[in-house]
Amino acid sequence: MTVFMVRRLMQSVVVLLVMSVIVFLGVFAIGNPVDILISPDADQLERERAIRALGLDRPLWEQYFVFLANAAKGDLGRSFVFNEPALRLIFERMPATLELAGTAVVLSLVVGIPLGLYAGLKPQAATSKGIMAGSIVGFSLPTFWQGLMFIMVFAVMLGWLPSTGRGQIGTFLGIRSSLFTLDGLAHVILPAVNLALGNAALIIRLTRAGVRETLLQDYIKFARAKGLSHRRVVGVHVLRNILIPLVTVVGLEIAGLIAFAVVTESIFAWPGMGKLIIDSINQLDRPVMVAYLMMIVLLFIVINLIVDVLYSVIDPRVRLQDVKG
């Protein structure tokens, strides 16, 4: 187990390095940040001065090694646009995103698993067909379209919920979050539902597929024959068996929700990390992009690690040395 973890961590460092190289090359390919950032009134000399001030006049490899040297000291650079350390900007935005993603994941699990179970256990029922058809709608609408519709219906027409933004922040057990105030909750509902819909649909479908298949397995038949209650068969044996694909996908989706809720955060003016990264990409704010993506790689690595460990917990047939990769 320890060996497994240590090896994973060492691999992660390599992945982080590769990521930073790609981002450096990527930004270089897209364009020169100074062309985006500089005032149109600035002349050539001013432009060259700004390029020097940001260190962009040096060869790319040199810029990269300067970055590495600083990164080794824990400094991932300073935003071109905000003139603040990139890491500070990211951590500042993190709570808002975690609130939104957390709410969305809980919503999609709470809605998705029961509906999926139902549709899987009673595949021929009209309700099940309705659930399945509905779930298709859930992921076929583009999020930007769906988000604006939510705003139109619930904020503009009905006036039940606020249209955009993050609500008041409350403190509970020393944690500051907008989830602790009524105003904050009202603000998070629409964007969270908007994020959750697509995932709920996917979870419904995976659960149903898993259940349908598991019910036919010998050990379920055996459990039934043994006289175990229906509730126990479903609750323990069936659920456990469908968890593997579910855990994988949910793991990926959580990470995806945290990292790239870009469209939802833009439409709902939610001041989270997704908004930060799209703004940074649009302004070629390389230090923020690099720092952000390195954090996200770390996040995915950790989540995938957890998922792999969960595999062996859920299904003893998978042993950790199998997933040491």
């Binding site: 904020a155 955009t164 003016a269």
Partner: peptide, 18 residues
């Protein structure tokens, strides 16, 4: 001053009275 960069969302915020 609230930063609502998406134009449609900005209009919706005005319509909703936010």
């Amino acid at each position: 001053f609230r930063l609502i960069t998406n134009p449609a969302a900005r209009v919706a915020a005005l319509l909703a009275g936010d």
